[in-house]
Design a protein around this nucleic acid. Structure first.
Lengths: 111, 111
DNA sequence: ACATTATAGTGTATATCGCACAGTAATGCA
DNA sequence: TGCATTACTGTGCGATATACACTATAATGT
């Protein structure tokens, strides 16, 4: 017997999916590293775990939307990711798509 | 070029994911059938195709969030889905979650 | 007579997530 | 001093849900 909480949790997972692309790209307008993202996004109410963030960053880099540089100047080496020109273009597109969707969904919910 | 469009399309797919649960549950506050959902949602700017909607309706029914009745009184038999009490509770929860998320994401995008 | 609409469905490949786990170096604390 | 926790980056696997490409049937439009 499926418990309601389980179903709810799964809905939340699905809702968060895709949003991660959007918020990570957005955050990488400033050079950022994975662990920082995990912390910042949790504070911002969009908790993404490391096992989600690290593969995501690599995917985005593979797609040419981010680029990365290791900073080894401190004791804790950090891999900084930063958005590319291509990434910026895509970010603008999906931000626009996102806002349109939000409006559409809100009007469905209110109807 | 084509590559970017593909990436964009995939982002859109991921963003739409989960939203389908929300809008379908919401629409089923009035008894509705699959084909009508496909048409209505397309008009509302949330295009979901039959191969997405029909399995989704069945899942929601399996989870006890919707129930269905065949209407065979007309020449075209239609399977009407309607939200259950449990479904209504969950809809309220995920609607609330959705609106909170939207606020959080918007504030990340603006930062 | 032929195409399109209306209506419901399936099978398979693919993408991404969560959970669990691996691994190292610094820092806090008992 | 010794041990736990934090900081930091990752991997492997199973589960879920989507897109794409179909199957199927009956009515309606031209």
């Amino acid at each position: 017997m499926n418990e309601l909480n389980e179903i709810y949790a799964n809905f939340v997972v699905e809702l968060r999916r895709g949003v991660s692309n959007l918020v990570v790209l957005s955050q990488c307008q400033q050079p950022t590293y994975g662990y920082q993202l995990v912390k910042n996004l949790a504070e911002s109410g969009i908790p993404l775990e490391g096992n989600t963030v690290y593969p995501l960053l690599r995917r985005l880099e593979d797609q040419g939307l981010l680029r990365s540089d290791w900073d080894t100047s401190t004791d804790k080496p950090r891999k900084y990711y930063q958005i590319t020109e291509t990434g910026s273009q895509l970010l603008a597109q999906i931000t626009s798509y996102w806002r349109d969707s939000v409006k559409n969904i809100e009007s469905i919910l209110e109807a």
